[in-house]
């Protein structure tokens, strides 16, 4: 519609009087052009996001498939022998997958209750000055780089776990001692690392519970604690589920800290076994891997990406249900 109008005015410029008389409309058409350009640029920026997700998906699939194709899905996904550099190499990543699953589940079981109780503390139980200390502390925990968690896990947690290991397996002839670098250490570190995420999201959920529910419950003679555990927490369930799912996403994807504390042998995921996660396999082997080994690592990346996409889609569904 604009084009027609512009066209008329542009021919008017060519007449000697046109330039002066129509300078306002000329300016307007100039502004119009800037407006169009601005909108186009903003749209492009927004599309960046979609391009990024699209190309990441494409690259992960394109690079993860070749090894599956060459070795067969059974050979790589469901075999448990990982000997990528042996003379007769074998690329089974079953234990790696299971370790990531087990590590995440255990970390959630350990971390979520603490996180939920902390969120309850912040929203329901804490006197103002105490909440003013605890909340910034949790924000700071979220900001600590994962290598720092790794450093402390390695030098503080591992020796403690080693002592526990020595006590549990005292007199055992068959147990391979890990020096504390095992699944248990990794789970403990992960349980700490998911705290900030789970706390802040479930805190928001608890805050969103209408005040009426609290008031009515108290008016009916329930104690504060009963109100919290029987009224508020159930009412905030969708938000809490979101928090847990976000926690799962963080735990599955954490690489550096876990790599420093978990040992690094491909093993059955038992608490006192040195283990390798999906993420740590990539971190520690990508540097030197070549050929099929490298491709198998990309397959591990694809499996990890698959898990994350699953978590994302789940999250998206929950959030949409909450809105709708």
């Amino acid at each position: 519609m604009d084009i027609g109008i512009h066209g008329v005015r542009q021919t008017a410029h060519n007449t000697p009087q046109g330039r002066l008389g129509l300078s306002v409309t000329e300016k307007r058409s100039h502004t119009q052009r800037i407006e169009t350009a601005a909108e186009a640029i903003f749209t492009l920026c927004a599309c960046c996001m979609v391009f990024a997700v699209g190309s990441i998906t494409l690259y992960m699939i394109a690079n993860g498939i070749p090894a599956i194709y060459k070795l067969g899905a059974r050979e790589i996904l469901f075999s448990s022998v990982w000997k990528p550099t042996a003379a007769d190499p074998s690329f089974g990543i079953l234990y790696v997958i299971l370790t990531s699953v087990a590590g995440t589940v255990l970390a959630i079981f350990l971390g979520v209750p603490v996180a939920l109780l902390t969120a309850v503390f912040l929203t329901e139980a804490a006197p103002r000055p105490l909440a003013a200390v605890v909340r910034p502390a949790i924000e700071l925990l979220a900001g600590i780089p994962s290598v720092v968690y790794g450093l402390l896990g390695m030098l503080v947690l591992n020796p403690l776990v080693y002592r526990l290991e020595q006590w549990v397996f005292r007199g055992s002839q068959t147990h391979q001692f890990t020096g504390g670098a095992n699944l248990l250490s990794a789970v403990l570190v992960l349980a700490i690392m998911i705290l900030p995420t789970v706390i802040s999201v479930s805190e928001t959920a608890l805050r969103a519970v209408p005040e009426q529910l609290r008031a009515s419950s108290m008016a009916l003679g329930a104690s504060r604690i009963q109100t919290i555990f029987q009224i508020i927490l159930p009412a905030a369930r969708p938000g809490i589920v979101t928090a847990v799912v976000l926690g799962v996403g963080r735990a599955v994807g954490e690489a550096m800290a876990v790599n420093l504390v978990s040992g690094g042998c491909v093993n059955v995921p038992l608490p006192f076994c040195s283990v390798r996660f999906l993420t740590t396999a990539i971190v520690s082997e990508m540097g030197y891997a070549e050929g099929l080994h490298r491709q198998a690592l990309f397959t591990i990346g694809l499996v990890l990406f698959g898990f994350i996409m699953l978590v994302n889609i789940l999250l998206h569904k929950i959030l949409r249900e909450e809105k709708g």
Partner: peptide, 23 residues
């Protein structure tokens, strides 16, 4: 676009690392 933003926020850094290395 909002789904893309959410997804991007949920992708772990090691996957970004792999993608960055390749792309």
């Amino acid at each position: 676009i909002e789904f893309a933003t959410e997804t991007l926020a949920g992708i772990p850094s090691i996957v970004f690392g792999l993608f960055g290395m390749m792309f």
